[in-house]
């Protein structure tokens, strides 16, 4: 349970960053930290103590105890999607900087048009 709680604390650090920072780059970093904590949470839930990595080293041997392959496969999908969304957010940030000359979201909000 300690591990789950620490994982959630990492998520909370990310939420705190998103809500309190004014810099666009720092908001993107906080979102990345939230994503990391969720990946770690799924991998933690799927762990079986004493289990092998989900690889079949010898197809002839009978069934061996493995860790859960399903959450790991889902996290693999999500990792790539996180990369795509992050690069999209960063391109938006750089376009906003080119237009307004600042990363400050409140100033961008005031300088409409």
């Amino acid at each position: 349970m300690t591990l789950y709680l620490l994982c959630f604390v990492l998520f909370m650090v990310g939420i705190y960053g998103v809500l309190t920072r004014r810099n666009l780059i720092k908001i993107v970093i906080s979102l990345t930290i939230m994503e990391f904590s969720i990946f770690l949470m799924l991998a933690l839930v799927g762990y079986v103590s004493g289990g092998q990595a989900p690889l079949v080293l010898d197809p002839e041997t009978p069934y061996v105890q493995v860790v859960d392959p399903l959450p790991q496969a889902m996290v693999l999908t999500t990792l790539v999607i996180a990369l795509a969304t992050n690069s999209m957010l960063l391109t938006m940030a750089i376009r906003l900087y080119k237009k307004y000359g600042t990363f400050d979201i409140r100033k961008i909000n005031e300088l409409k048009g």
């Binding site: 991998a43 799927g46 762990y47 790991q72």
Partner: peptide, 11 residues
Amino acid sequence: LLRAPDLAIVQ
């Protein structure tokens, strides 16, 4: 440590 080599490589 959590026995997820594929995830480690992709990460």
